[in-house]
C-alpha cells in the first residue's frame, strides 16, 4: 500500500501509525509513480494520534523528533522512505538507533541528515543580504533542502538591530525577523528597493573578490567543490 501525506510532521506520524503493521508500506509526500494494481491511501494529519506517536517516540529516543524534523526537510526524492525506515527502526528496537551505522536504514538516514545540516552550515556563509532603502535586509536563497527558517537564529544573534527576510524562492516561502520576532510566511515574489549605497558596496565586494585571488594558482575544480555552482546565483561576486 502507498500512503500519501502532505509532508508535515503530524501527517507523517499519523501515516506512520496507520502503516505500521503493513509490511509493504511506502510513505510518500511527492509525486509517486503508481504501479498497476497498487493500492493508495491519502492520510490526513490527526492531531491526537500524531501527539501520541510523538510522545512514544520521545520516550524511546529524546532526539527522535529532532531527527525526524531534519529528515522531512530533506530535498532528496526518497526522504519519506528514509524517514519511515529510520523511525520504524527506533520503534522496533525501542531505543536510539543513530549509532548503528552498519544498518542500511540508519546509514541512509545519517547521510540524509548530514546533507541537511551541511547545507545549513554552507548557507550561513553563502547567503548574501541586500540592503533595502528602509534599512531592512533581504536575502534570496534556493537551497536543496527546506531550511530557510533554520538560518534565522544565527543572523538574529549577530544582526539584532536589522530586520531581515530570507526568501526561499524555490519553495516560495520566507523566514522573517522583524526586529523583535521571527516567523515564516508564504511569499511568491518580492520587490526590493535598493538603498542608495547598495550597488557601490556590491562593487567594492566584487573588487575585493578579484584582488584577493592569486591567478597563478588557479584551482577551479577545488573552488567548485567547496562552493557548488548552484549556490552562485545570488552571490554578487559570482554574477557578471
Amino acid at each position: 500500500m502507498i500512503y500519501f501525506y502532505d509532508g508535515s510532521k503530524e501527517a507523517f506520524l499519523t501515516a506512520f501509525l496507520i502503516a505500521f503493521s503493513d509490511d509493504d508500506a511506502v510513505l510518500t509526500s511527492g509525486n509517486k509513480q503508481i504501479g498497476l494494481g497498487q493500492q493508495t491511501v491519502f492520510v490526513r494529519a490527526d492531531k491526537a494520534r500524531a501527539r501520541r506517536a510523538e510522545e512514544r517516540f520521545l520516550q524511546l529516543d529524546k532526539k527522535s523528533m529532532h531527527d525526524l524534523d531534519t529528515l522531512l526537510r530533506s530535498g532528496a526524492e526518497n526522504k519519506d522512505t528514509v524517514a519511515y525506515q529510520y523511525m520504524k527502526m527506533i520503534a522496533a528496537r525501542g531505543m536510539p538507533v543513530r549509532e548503528m551505522l552498519a544498518e542500511d536504514a540508519i546509514c541512509a538516514a545519517a547521510e540524509c541528515m548530514r546533507r541537511v545540516g551541511f547545507e545549513v552550515h554552507r548557507m550561513l556563509g553563502f547567503l548574501r543580504f541586500i540592503e533595502s532603502a528602509s534599512g531592512a535586509l533581504y536575502a534570496p536563497v534556493s537551497p536543496d533542502n527546506d531550511i530557510c527558517d533554520l538560518l534565522v537564529p544565527h543572523f538574529r544573534a549577530r544582526l539584532p538591530e536589522y530586520p531581515f527576510l530570507i526568501h526561499d524562492v524555490k519553495r516560495k516561502k520566507a523566514a522573517v525577523y522583524d526586529g523583535k520576532n521571527t516567523f515564516t510566511a508564504p511569499l511568491a515574489s518580492a520587490e526590493v528597493v535598493l538603498s542608495a549605497d547598495e550597488a557601490a558596496w556590491q562593487n567594492l565586494w566584487k573588487q575585493y573578490y578579484r584582488s584577493v585571488n592569486i591567478p597563478s594558482r588557479e584551482r577551479l575544480r577545488q573552488m567548485r567543490g567547496y562552493m557548488p555552482v548552484r549556490y552562485w546565483k545570488f552571490m554578487p561576486e559570482k554574477s557578471p
Binding site: R158, Q222, M235
Partner: peptide, 18 residues
C-alpha cells in the same frame, strides 16, 4: 551592536585559486 563570534568558523566565498 553588530556581529558575534562563530566558534566553528565560517567560509563566505571561494576564489578561483581554491
Amino acid at each position: 551592536g553588530m556581529g558575534n563570534g562563530f566558534a566553528a568558523g565560517c567560509c563566505h566565498s571561494f576564489t578561483p585559486d581554491g
